[in-house]
Every structure is written in structure tokens, then in C-alpha cells.
């Protein structure tokens, strides 16, 4: 089920913006080493710092440009609040990154568009609550959004154990991917130039990857990411089915896109059931709630 319809134009915007945004993470692999372009190399990170927030805003605006149903909006706000509120709890009790846990499950239930929005709103709300607004925020938002989007794109047919297994696997992968991308973003800023762990402009991609891997190992973020991946997967295995059921129940109760119909007053109310079917089919097209 998809709470938020992603129109073809939106999909194209999403793809283009994601492609451009990916470059803002991976630029250290591609910056040229030619001396004549050193000026460009120096300005690239700053340009990207300015560009990414705009790209994130563009995609969010595009996703909601068709108008978003109040039920989906309230669900989005409340789930983002759950993410923001459970975050300290998760860190306190078990070192669980609850954000991914709920993001993956909600993306799965409510569809890719909703998942994308939830990723961004969750991290944005969390940042506002903890006064953590800064240039890193759009990057975190985008990564989380990709995770939510991906969860919504998993094969729809799966149910039961297979679904839990796939979601747990995806959750673990997503946790690694998030860690890797954020490391990649942080890498040039944290070590600076001139160390053996710094990126080398113009060097082959593999060499830079090697250095990134070393940086990750040295800053022990790899261990952190592993812990996060394991707890996310375990949480999805243990609590996933119950949370999925709760989310699906909420979706059912909210009656997203339930047919809305009007009919003339029936003179014989006892025969309503037959009338409903007929009128429902006829009226749904005319008066459907957006």
C-alpha cells in the first residue's frame, strides 16, 4: 500500500536530485589532481554544502506538491515524533538506533514516498529538538530518506517470516550504508589534508577507498556501525512483526483512500446494503477525497 502517490515527474525529480546528491558524498573519489583545477577542488566541498540543502528542499517540495492528505501528514508528524522520542530511549537501554528500525518498517507499510518524507522529517525534528542543526543535517536527512525510500521499494508480496527476514537484512545493510556515507562525508573534514588517512585528489578510486576503509577502521566507526546494524536487525526480528501489525492496523483504521460516496436518501433503509454497493461504485469517482 502506498499512502503517498509518487507521480512519474516526481520520480524523475527524485532520481536526478539523488544522482546530484550522491556526488556531494563521493566527491573525494573524483576530484581531479590537475594543478590548474586546484581552485575548483577547494571550492567543491563548499559548493556542495550549499547545494545539498537546496536539493533536499526541492525533493521534499516535489513529493508533497500534489497536496498531502491530512491523515498521511498527521501520521508522518507523529511517526517522526516517535523516532525523535525513542532515540534517547534506544541509546539508553540497548544502544539501538531506533530511527532505522521504525523508518524501515514504516517505509515498508506506507510506501516509498512516505518513507522518504519520514526519513527527512525524523532527522530534522530530532535535530531541532537537540539543537543539532548544521551543515551535516541535510546529509543525514538525505541518507535517512534513501533508507525509507528503499524500504518502500522492497518486493510487496512478501509476508510473514520471509518479510521479517528481508526487512532485517535490509535494516542491517541500511545501517552500514548510512554509516559509510556519513563517514565519507565527514572524512575530508575530520582528518584534514596531509595525513596518510586523508584522501588524495586524483588518486585512483580504489586507493581512496582503501584510505577511507582505514579511516573507518581507525575511528572505530566500523565497530559502531556493526553494533548498530546488529541491533537494528535484531530489533526488527523481535519486534518487527508486532510493529508491522500495529502500523498496518493504523493504516486500516485511517482508511487511506477509502471510497467516499454519496447517494440519494433511500426510501427503504432495510435494503441499504444493495444500494451501497451500487452507489459506492458510482460515487467513488466523483467525490473521492484527494
Amino acid at each position: 500500500m502506498s499512502v503517498l502517490r509518487v507521480a512519474p515527474r516526481t520520480a524523475v525529480v527524485l532520481t536526478l536530485a539523488s544522482a546530484a546528491a550522491l556526488a556531494t558524498f563521493t566527491w573525494p573519489f573524483f576530484v581531479p589532481a590537475h594543478p590548474e583545477s586546484t581552485a575548483r577542488t577547494a571550492e567543491a566541498p563548499l559548493v556542495f554544502l550549499v547545494m545539498l540543502p537546496v536539493l533536499v528542499a526541492l525533493t521534499l517540495a516535489e513529493l508533497t506538491s500534489g497536496g498531502i492528505d491530512s491523515k498521511a501528514l498527521a501520521m508522518l508528524g507523529v511517526l517522526a515524533a516517535v523516532n525523535a522520542a525513542l532515540r534517547p530511549l534506544g541509546a539508553g537501554t540497548a544502544g539501538i538506533e531506533t530511527v532505522f528500525f521504525l523508518l524501515v518498517l514504516a517505509g515498508r507499510v506506507f510506501g516509498p514516498g512516505f518513507g522518504f518524507l519520514l526519513g527527512s522529517t525524523s532527522l530534522f525534528a530530532s535535530a531541532l529538538l537537540t539543537a543539532g542543526v548544521g551543515p551535516w543535517l541535510p546529509f543525514q536527512m538525505l541518507c535517512a530518506s534513501w533508507i525509507g525510500l528503499g524500504a518502500g521499494l522492497l518486493p510487496a508480496r512478501l509476508r510473514g517470516r520471509a518479510e521479517t527476514a528481508v526487512l532485517a537484512g535490509y535494516g542491517a545493510l541500511a545501517a552500514y550504508g548510512y554509516g559509510l556515507l556519513m563517514n565519507l562525508w565527514f572524512w575530508p573534514f575530520s582528518v584534514g589534508a596531509d595525513t596518510q588517512l586523508s584522501y588524495v585528489a586524483g588518486a585512483p578510486v580504489l586507493e581512496n577507498l582503501h584510505r577511507l576503509a582505514l579511516f573507518t577502521a581507525v575511528t572505530s566507526t566500523f565497530g559502531w556501525d556493526t553494533g548498530r546494524a546488529i541491533t537494528t536487525a535484531v530489533a526488527i526480528v523481535l519486534a518487527g512483526p508486532a510493529v508491522l501489525a500495529a502500523l498496518r492496523r493504523a493504516a486500516r483504521r485511517a482508511a487511506f483512500g477509502a471510497p467516499v460516496a454519496f447517494a440519494a436518501a433511500s426510501d427503504r433503509p432495510t435494503e441499504l446494503t444493495a444500494g451501497v454497493r451500487r452507489d459506492g461504485a458510482a460515487g467513488a469517482g466523483a467525490h473521492r477525497v484527494q
Binding site: A74, G77, A80, T121
Partner: peptide, 10 residues
């Protein structure tokens, strides 16, 4: 819309 969702979340 996104702003409203964040207001609600906050």
C-alpha cells in the same frame, strides 16, 4: 506540508 509535519513532530 513538510513544515507542518515537523511542527507536529516537535
Amino acid at each position: 506540508a513538510v513544515g507542518t509535519a515537523v511542527v507536529v513532530a516537535l
